[in-house]
């Protein structure tokens, strides 16, 4: 981990874990209640809705269309502008990989690009 990213971690709520230094989302390692305020890279961000353990929180602003990165790898694209501290889930992130899986069913399990 670089010195810069260590400093970032130090100024972020301990309940938010950055798995890989290049990630732009944290993982909540505990339930975070609505109405709380948490520190995200030094900025105090209010928490409007409860963020359960295992869910993602934006580490920085992610414009619509940009890749969301976790484990150092793209896990999909932002479907709208995301601000630092926002909950990141199905309402603002979609798969780049199997966008039609639920409808396409088993026959097109692998989408060829």
């Amino acid at each position: 981990m670089t010195k810069e990213s260590k400093n970032k971690t130090a100024r972020t709520d301990r309940r938010l874990l950055l798995i890989s230094p290049e990630d732009n989302v944290f993982v909540a390692v505990a339930d975070i209640d609505a109405g709380e305020t948490f520190l995200v890279n030094g900025a105090a961000v209010p928490v409007p809705i409860r963020i359960p353990l295992g869910h993602k929180v934006a580490a920085r602003g992610i414009p619509a269309g940009e890749k969301v990165v976790k484990y150092g790898a793209a896990i999909g694209s932002a479907t709208r502008d995301i601000s630092a501290g926002d909950h990141v889930h199905t309402h603002n992130l979609k798969s780049d990989y199997l966008p039609t899986y639920a409808r396409a069913g088993r026959k097109s399990y692998v989408q060829r690009h």
């Binding site: 993982v27 909540a28 359960p52 353990l53 295992g54 869910h55 993602k56 976790k70 484990y71 790898a73 793209a74 896990i75 999909g76 990141v88 889930h89 199905t90 992130l93 979609k94 798969s95 780049d96 990989y97 199997l98 899986y101």
Partner: peptide, 16 residues
């Protein structure tokens, strides 16, 4: 999804 996973590639990355 209830556990916080949003996409197939995210789920797979956990194993990966």
């Amino acid at each position: 999804a209830e556990g916080g996973l949003t996409t197939q590639e995210e789920k797979s990355m956990g194993s990966y």
